[in-house]
Design a binder for these strands. Structure first.
Length: 212
DNA sequence: TGCCAGGCCGGGT
DNA sequence: ACCCGGCATGGC
């Protein structure tokens, strides 16, 4: 049985703090979480910068902005029609349930919030958990494509296991540590981008390799 | 130039 | 319960 805490410590020792999420406010983090679905972060940055330039990175502004105008601003992030709809859905939820305030949202229980987020059209488990962990500072582990790729290539879980299977592995074997969950997911992204490319069968250059 | 990027949904089996 | 196509831009 691989000790996930040892893997974490090894990665942290090698790569250090990742300073995530790369966004300044809880709302910006939530918006970024939606925009980065299956999309390179550098493209998301362009979209977010467009919103900032138009002073549109607020619940009110996003709520009132016409669909086509918003779609045009986030165009660099790709899938802009779908993502405009998803942003609008999230913001409508935020307005209706929390008066447009991420701070109010943060007060509530994380499992209640997770259910609510998953009921929003266009928000699935990874996006919900990213918002919970990074915007609302709830101790929930975020599983993504890199997490699955790295763990499966190292024989820890099969790649066709579900999101919940991967998440349960972390939740069952690690302490619920907000700071650690934050760093751990960010480290997986760092390692995944750098060493664990899609076409390579094994991460032979990866810092995890010695745990095989 | 084709492949890839910090998913998710809807329709078909 | 799975499987697959669609969604779209920008960087290498």
């Amino acid at each position: 049985m691989v000790k996930l805490i040892e893997i974490y410590q090894k990665l942290f020792n090698v790569f250090g703090h990742q300073n995530w999420w790369p966004g300044e406010t809880p709302l910006e983090i939530a918006v970024g979480a939606i925009l980065t679905q299956n999309t390179n972060w550098s493209n998301v940055e362009k979209a977010i910068q467009n919103l900032k330039n138009k002073k549109a990175l607020s619940a009110k502004a996003l709520h009132e902005m016409p669909f086509k105008k918003l779609a045009n601003l986030i165009k660099p992030a790709g899938y802009f029609n779908i993502k405009t709809k998803r942003l609008k859905s999230f913001i409508a939820f935020l307005m209706n349930d929390f008066h447009g305030s991420m701070k109010k949202m943060k007060i509530y229980d994380m499992y209640l919030l997770r259910e609510k987020l998953l009921n929003i059209h266009g928000i699935g488990p990874e996006t919900a958990d990213s918002i919970l962990l990074y915007a609302l500072e709830k101790p929930i582990f975020v599983v993504d494509a890199y997490t699955k790729r790295i763990l499966s290539r190292h024989g820890i879980l099969r790649h066709d296991n579900s999101y919940d299977d991967f998440q349960k592995l972390f939740h069952s074997s690690l302490k619920r540590d907000l700071k650690m969950f934050n760093e751990y997911h960010a480290l997986f992204v760092k390692v995944g981008k750098t060493y664990c490319k899609p076409k390579e069968p094994l991460c032979s250059q990866c810092a995890l390799y010695e745990y095989l």
